[in-house]
Simulated scan of single mutants.
Amino acid sequence: MTTMAMRSNSHEKLAEAAQHSRALIRQGRHTGPTAGLAPGCVQANLMILPSSLADEFLLFCQRNPKPCPLLAVTEPGQHAVPSLGHDIDLRNDVPKYRVWHHGKLVSEPASLDEVWRDDLVSFLIGCSFSFEEALVADGIDVRHISMGVNVPMYRTNIPTAGTHKLQGPLVVSMRPMKAGDAIRAIQITSRFPSVHGAPVHLGDPSLIGIHDIQQPDYGDPVPVHADEIPVFWACGVTPQAVIHTVKPEFSITHAPGHMLITDISNTSIASF
């Protein structure tokens, strides 16, 4: 078998795994976080806004590529994303959504069928699950994975580069590591700019406005051992902090840790 044929066969298997996982989610047979589902496939954060705010949010993403690396943007009302998977239905392929009215969380449905509108534009944003797979493959302990919990995430005092209508704090995800592993993690994640890239901070959490590392704003706490330092990456939950700050009339996001699984392979987005 030629190298090209092997790659094609591998991609087909990944796409089948992604489609199977989406089917489980769509049927309500998987309702929890998506970490570990369809290994090797890119997962995506989701932000859905009325078309009146879409251009503004696109500009926000362009100004903030670390927390908001765009994988795809839909046309108004479109719920398919053929560039990420031929059978994707954004209304039903995320295990848990969050619906917001004027910045207030009003529901966490498993389907958007009852709230979908023809003016909604969807933004698919890169997720750190992709680079975590590379970290684990290199033998680095990713604490929330080894514990079977959701990654801890925190609002910081680091401002995003705002637009006229959209501004708010940077949200980061944290993984504790020994110093040597942290250096290696920087090298590895730098190869994944489309899923947040290298860390934005290492060490003392108080320097970025985090006063209790055992009290994350999203996700679950994990222990940081005496011989470890906390390592922080920009996080795709940042748009939810923007919603909390700006309070748009209507918006939809994924629930933290509950991602859209795509047919795209993690290796295809790595820079070497």
Rank of each mutant, 00 (worst) to 15 (best):
R155A: 10
I140K: 10
E108T: 15
L135Y: 04
M147W: 01
V172S: 08
Q78G: 06
I158V: 12
K96R: 15
R175Q: 11
H164V: 09
S130M: 06
A179Y: 12
F57E: 00
L59M: 11
M147P: 00
M174P: 09
S173M: 08
S122I: 05
C68R: 10
E133S: 09
S146M: 03
M47G: 05
N157R: 08
R175H: 03
L166D: 03
V136G: 00
I125W: 10
M153R: 07
N150E: 11
L166H: 06
L124G: 02
R98D: 00
P176T: 00
G103D: 04
I186S: 10
K165H: 14
M174I: 08
A80R: 14
A137Q: 14
V171I: 11
M174Q: 13
G168P: 14
I125R: 12
W100Y: 14
C61S: 14
C127E: 01
I188A: 03
I48S: 08
T189S: 15
D141L: 11
D118Q: 14
I125T: 05
D118N: 14
K96G: 08
D87M: 00
I48Q: 07
Q62V: 00
G180S: 11
E114Q: 13
I183T: 11
D118M: 03
R63V: 00
V73Y: 03
H102C: 04
C68M: 14
R191H: 11
V172Q: 08
P176R: 02
D55N: 13
V115Y: 09
E114N: 08
P82Y: 04
Y97C: 02
I188Y: 04
I188Q: 08
S130K: 05
S173R: 08
F57Y: 14
P76H: 12
L46G: 11
E114G: 00
V115K: 08
G168L: 05
G180A: 08
